[in-house]
């Protein structure tokens, strides 16, 4: 594993390279392009539609008006899209890479592991199908809410979106690290953790009791990915600067925990390696 310094220029060059490869992957034919683009769109939209239908039927959900719900859904779609754009090809499902012995493909590259983890999954073509619906929902609901965002609001919006992406990735990496110790059993663990988050993200959680709500803000941080930041950004509940700063702080904590588990797992992997490359492993 290389540990030399890595410049932003090199990072940009790698993103450009992987963007080109993603384009080639999708441009194999119209059938492939259509299927991939449509699939991501349908899956992402379907995840948000249940909440949308409820909000449409009841003209809002509890304290949330219909435009506020649409903003929440747009925000959730935007976060999902960013994760898909930057961490496709199983970089958001890292347990698959680890369990299948594919982490070695990254470790042998002459660059730091972190650089490979933030660049190799870049898929701006195949992963961006949610961009238009997310942007539409955010802009349209913003107009309905008569929002006149200040520069501070935009700064908070950008910080919150980035924090939400970090929390998603941290949750995935913390769970995915289990595959270092149990590669076969935990190879698909990130599918379950991903489903868990994506199923729960689009719902406003105001009606939940203390224990359930605490769980969804800590153990399974689905509430931190769209509900909490949207509440703060739209002022659904009285908001202080402490609450506004809570999300970036939580992202930092989750990232630290994920980095700790992943590093420990990597150290263990350094001693054991992947069973896929042993005499009886199927990659021999």
């Amino acid at each position: 594993m290389a540990s030399s310094t890595f410049t932003p220029t090199q990072l940009g060059r790698l993103w450009r390279l992987y963007a080109g490869m993603d384009l080639l992957y999708i441009a194999r034919g119209p059938g492939v392009a259509f299927t991939y683009y449509l699939a991501e769109l349908v899956i992402g939209a379907a995840a948000a539609t249940a909440t949308f239908l409820l909000a449409a039927r009841f003209d809002g959900i509890g304290a949330w008006s219909r435009p506020q719900i649409l903003f929440l859904l747009g925000y959730a779609m935007l976060v999902r899209m960013l994760v898909t754009v930057f961490f496709s090809y199983n970089l958001a499902h890292i347990s698959r890479r680890i369990g299948r012995g594919q982490l070695d493909h990254l470790l042998i590259q002459p660059q730091p592991l972190w650089a490979a983890l933030v660049t190799e999954g870049f898929a701006p073509v195949s992963g961006s199908s949610m961009l238009a619906p997310a942007a539409f929902l955010l802009i349209w609901s913003g107009q309905q809410l008569d929002m006149t965002p200040s520069a501070a609001w935009w700064a908070l919006f950008v910080v919150d979106v980035l924090a939400s992406v970090v929390i998603v990735q941290s949750f995935e990496y913390a769970w995915g690290s289990v595959a270092f110790w149990a590669p076969r059993a935990a190879e698909e663990i990130n599918s379950h953790s991903w489903d868990m988050l994506q199923t729960l993200i689009p719902f406003p959680l105001d009606g939940l009791s203390g224990l359930a709500l605490t769980s969804l803000l800590t153990i399974v941080p689905a509430g931190l990915i769209a509900w909490y930041p949207t509440r703060v950004l739209l002022g659904v509940a009285p908001v202080s600067w402490v609450e506004a700063a809570a999300l970036p702080a939580a992202a930092l904590l989750f990232a630290t925990f994920a980095a700790w588990t992943f590093t420990r797992g990597l150290r263990h992997y350094g001693r054991t390696g992947s069973s896929r490359y042993l005499e009886y492993g199927h990659r021999r």
Partner: peptide, 14 residues
């Protein structure tokens, strides 16, 4: 595999 326990946790939370 331990995934089935996560599935149950997801279903309960859902």
């Amino acid at each position: 595999h331990p995934g089935f326990l996560l599935t149950y946790a997801l279903r309960l939370l859902r």
